[in-house]
Every structure is written in structure tokens, then in C-alpha cells.
């Protein structure tokens, strides 16, 4: 498939994929990064993404799913525009990682894997993100925020909300209805 033919990806990403499959000694090596980049653009790995990636690599959709479901960053349902990933692994836990998670839950009104009803934020408790010496740390999409304190949480959210074009109402608790599961589910 070339970028000119029907693609669900933007022309830029499609062109990037064309280059990606040509880069490796074996085409299939492009699979894992391709899935991640596709998710970055589309938001999640929809059936259509799986089908197009399968076709681009020349493997079956089953093969793509076998691989995709293995990697914890890849998801099959939409997340929020800003996916907040709070590390609670040992180094972060020792320095209050769970307090950070609690605060995000309170502010957003959603739990682990929940999405705010406006779709701006989703929340995830994640494993170690490699910021142990600057704990507690989170990632919002790919951005790191480290040496956090619970009181810094509202400001972080406001910043992203502004970026998303949804300025908050000034109250710290967004009070939106939870869609996600209970904490630690």
C-alpha cells in the first residue's frame, strides 16, 4: 500500500509508514512502532487501524492483534485527548505516588482507565516509567512531569485543559461524572 491509496492515516503518517516498512531488513520489524504511531494519530487501535497495518506489513490481522495486545501502551478503545499515566511503582510509591493518583482521581472524577465525559482526560495507573530518581512522576501522553506533589495536580490539569481549548471553570474539582472503573479495578 502506498500513501496515495486509501489510507485512514494522514498523508504525512502514511508516507512515514511507507518509509518505515522499507527501512528494515524485514518488513515486519516496523510493526510495533507503526502501531504506536498509528495510535498517536487515531487515538487507539481501531479495527480499521489493525486492518491497514496488517496490509501494510503483509501479515494477517490476527498476527497484528497477537502482537498489539501484548504491549501495554497499546489500547483498543479511545482514551482521553490527554492520557494521564501515574506511576505508582516502588520509587514513586515511596514518595507519594498513590497520593498523586488519588488527587487525579478526585480532580477528574474517574478511576484507573477512566475517561472524563468531555473526552479531554483519561487516567491510568502505570508501572515504572523510568523517572525513579525524580519521583513521584507521571506522563501526560509522552510528556513527563516529575517531583510532583498533590497540590500541583490542578495546575497540570488546567494547563492541558487550556491546550485542549477547554478552559476550566476555576474550581479545582471538575466534578464530572466518572465513566471509568473503580480505582484499582
Amino acid at each position: 500500500m502506498s500513501s496515495e491509496t486509501m489510507s485512514i492515516f494522514s498523508p504525512r503518517l502514511a508516507a512515514r509508514f511507507d518509509a518505515l516498512v522499507a527501512k528494515y531488513p524485514v518488513k515486519r520489524s516496523a510493526l510495533v512502532p507503526m502501531l504506536l504511531y498509528a495510535q498517536d494519530e487515531i487515538g487507539y487501535l481501531s479495527d480499521a487501524v489493525i486492518a491497514e497495518v496488517a496490509e501494510r506489513i503483509g501479515i494477517t490481522e490476527l498476527d497484528v492483534r497477537n502482537v498489539a495486545t501484548y504491549y501495554s501502551m497499546l489500547r483498543f478503545k479511545p482514551a482521553g485527548k490527554y492520557n494521564i499515566q501515574v506511576c505508582t511503582n516502588i520509587s514513586c510509591m515511596l514518595r507519594g505516588g498513590y497520593d498523586i493518583l488519588d488527587r487525579f482521581q478526585k480532580e477528574l472524577g474517574v478511576g484507573h482507565k477512566g475517561i472524563t465525559s468531555d473526552g479531554v482526560f483519561s487516567l491510568e495507573e502505570v508501572e515504572c516509567i523510568g523517572a525513579c530518581c525524580w519521583a513521584p512522576a507521571i506522563q501526560v501522553n509522552y510528556d513527563f512531569h516529575d517531583e510532583l506533589k498533590p497540590e500541583l495536580v490542578p495546575g497540570i490539569l488546567e494547563g492541558y485543559r487550556a491546550k485542549a481549548g477547554f478552559p476550566g471553570d476555576g474550581s479545582t474539582s471538575l466534578g464530572r461524572k466518572a465513566e471509568g472503573k473503580a480505582p484499582h479495578a
Binding site: N89, I90, S91, C128, C132
Partner: peptide, 11 residues
Amino acid sequence: DESEPGTCKDH
């Protein structure tokens, strides 16, 4: 693929 909890040197 630095992922061992407690480790962030490669970062």
C-alpha cells in the same frame, strides 16, 4: 528498554 523499577540512568 530501561524498565526495571528503580532504574532511570539510561533516561
